[in-house]
């Protein structure tokens, strides 16, 4: 294949060849500088040293940890600790400030809302949606309608104690009767028609008139004479454009017949106090806070 001879010089270029020739083609030898070779060796040494110093080699479970003990996880933990320390005074303020006066301190409010946003994404978005727009049966927190109150204090109470749960004695609790056991179907249809007429123009007047009488007897105690609801009892406003389960006739009949019983956990039992306050501030700031 190749021949080594004393010294071959290519005639055309005047460059020494390696003595290798393939099918008459000579390989010229333009030697690399020696420092280049040493640089290569240095990078190899560096590479080996690096894998010893830092986490590198994959093992069955995990990887070598490296003698310097560097770890991204530890760095993050340290960062979090540093941030916690920096936010210490804000947390202190958050825990001692009256919720209703929180908006008076913009810095504190900004901290609370930012913290609450993270809590909301982790704990609340499963039911209320990541954008807080809710679903059927899970209230939309962006609008200006509140079942139990939309003030900072009202929201905080709801978050802390929850609604109709069995774990917190202070939970907000009311139950609407299932009128399917009390009224016949025609009566329910009439009552539904009246409720429908409160926020729509196309109701049947006669049926609604019948329903109005029934409403006065059965519903007005909680929902009010004009259907404006009662936050003391968590009774929804029936005259506005917002419906938790739906405002069409069919859904209204279903709601009156079987009643509804939405439950929310008492987050005061699950979250630390600062997070309860923060997430309440966040919800208050979503657009409907009062």
């Amino acid at each position: 294949m190749s021949d080594h001879t004393e010294k071959n010089v290519d005639e055309v270029t005047g460059v020494e060849t390696t003595g290798h020739s393939w099918d008459g083609i000579q390989e010229l030898n333009n030697p690399m500088p020696r420092w280049w070779l040493w640089t290569l060796y240095a990078t190899i040494v560096w590479g080996i040293a690096y894998t010893i110093a830092f986490p590198a080699w994959p093992l069955i479970s995990g990887a070598t940890t490296g003698v310097l003990g560097w770890s991204t996880r530890a760095n993050v933990a340290q960062d979090i600790k540093a941030h916690d320390a920096k936010n210490g005074s804000l947390v202190e303020q958050l825990l001692t400030t009256e919720m209703d006066s929180l908006p008076e301190d913009p810095d504190l409010l900004r901290y609370a809302v930012a913290r609450g946003g993270a809590v909301f994404k982790a704990q609340c978005s499963q039911c209320h949606g990541s954008g807080a727009a809710g679903f059927k049966g899970y209230p939309n927190l962006l609008d200006d309608d509140w079942l139990w109150g939309g003030s900072m204090d009202g929201i905080t109470y709801t978050v802390r104690h929850g609604i109709r749960n069995e774990t917190d004695d202070d939970a907000r609790y009311t139950a609407m009767p299932a009128f399917g056991e009390l009224l016949d179907k025609d009566q329910i249809r009439a009552a539904a028609e009246y409720v429908y007429s409160l926020s729509n123009d196309d109701a049947e007047p006669e049926l609604a008139a019948t329903g109005q009488q029934l409403y006065g007897e059965q519903c007005a105690a909680c929902h009010g004479d004009t259907g404006r609801g009662d936050r003391e009892q968590g009774a929804p406003n029936l005259a506005d454009a917002i419906w938790l389960y739906g405002g069409d006739r069919e859904t209204l009949i279903q709601t009156i017949t079987y009643s509804r019983f939405g439950i929310m956990p008492a987050w005061g039992q699950r979250l630390i106090e600062a997070d309860v306050r923060a997430v309440s501030a966040y919800v208050h700031g979503l657009g409907g806070g009062e």
């Binding site: 004393e6 030697p31 020696r34 070779l37």
Partner: peptide
């Protein structure tokens, strides 16, 4: 085939 030392592939900087 003659067996001699191949030419050096690296050179010192001049």
């Amino acid at each position: 085939m003659t067996q001699t030392t191949p030419p050096p592939l690296y050179a010192a900087q001049e």
